Amino acid sequence: MNVAIFVSGSGSNCENIIRHFENDPNVNISLVLSNRADAYALTRAKNLEVETAVLPKAIFNEPVILMGLLESYHIDFIVLAGFLLMIPDFLVKAYEGRMINLHPALLPKFGGKGMFGHHVHEAVKAAGETETGMTVHWVSNVCDGGEIIAQFKTALSPDDTPDDIAEKEHQLEMQHFPQVIEQVLKETF
């Protein structure tokens, strides 16, 4: 099956996912798509010999262009790994039950519009949380509102800075995200 990874940033999760599946005969990471031409994730993907594409926001929201691209790569499943654009309704509908997202907090807390990257970890710190974690969920029309697939937690100390919180949460992503994807693919296909 052909999988596309959507990214906007540095791509450490993207690289981790590509490496996880590189010897899997049933899963082909066929495309890494970004809305930003300067996303380092594209360099990581190219270094691992995975095809890449850039679709800025205006083009990303064009059904003929985006769906045409995905069809040209025969994409069966989409993984959002640090992708910062809202997914248009036409794509949510086309890939219902075949598109997942990683969120760097324990949803439903610290989710929704504006809750991405460091904003999440700063909010976790400001709220005095004693734990944080990661959530993998199905993509729906509601920002961070799709059904939760898996969550993993880590304890926080009062001394943790937002950077410390980010690092603890990122370690969970590196450890668990590829395995969750693998499990979802087995259950879906």
Score class of each variant (00 low, 15 high):
Ser10Phe: 14
Asn16Gln: 06
Asn16Arg: 14
Arg19Cys: 01
His20Asn: 09
Ile29Asp: 12
Ser30Ala: 14
Val32His: 15
Val32Ile: 15
Arg36Phe: 06
Ala39Glu: 00
Tyr40Gln: 13
Ala41Gly: 15
Leu42Asn: 09
Ala45Cys: 08
Glu49Phe: 15
Glu51Ile: 03
Thr52Ala: 10
Asn61Phe: 14
Leu66Gly: 07
Met67Arg: 07
Glu71Tyr: 12
Glu71Ile: 10
Ser72Ala: 12
Ser72Asp: 15
Asp76Met: 08
Phe77Glu: 10
Leu80Glu: 11
Leu84Ser: 03
Met86Asn: 12
Ile87Arg: 05
Asp89Met: 04
Lys93His: 13
Lys93Cys: 08
Ala94Asp: 13
Tyr95Gly: 07
Arg98Ser: 11
Ala105Gln: 06
Gly111Lys: 05
Met115Ala: 04
Phe116Ser: 04
Val120Pro: 00
Ala123Glu: 02
Val124Asp: 02
Ala126Leu: 05
Ala127Asp: 05
Ala127Trp: 05
Glu129Pro: 03
Thr130Leu: 13
Val136Lys: 12
Val139Ser: 08
Asn141Pro: 09
Val142Ala: 10
Gly145Ala: 12
Gly146Glu: 10
Ile148Phe: 12
Gln151Asn: 13
Gln151Tyr: 08
Phe152Arg: 15
Leu156Pro: 06
Pro158Cys: 14
Asp159Glu: 14
Thr161Met: 02
Asp163His: 09
Asp163Ala: 10
Asp164Leu: 09
Ile165Lys: 04
Glu167Gly: 04
Glu173Val: 00
Met174Cys: 05
Gln179Val: 06
Val180Arg: 13
Glu187Asp: 11
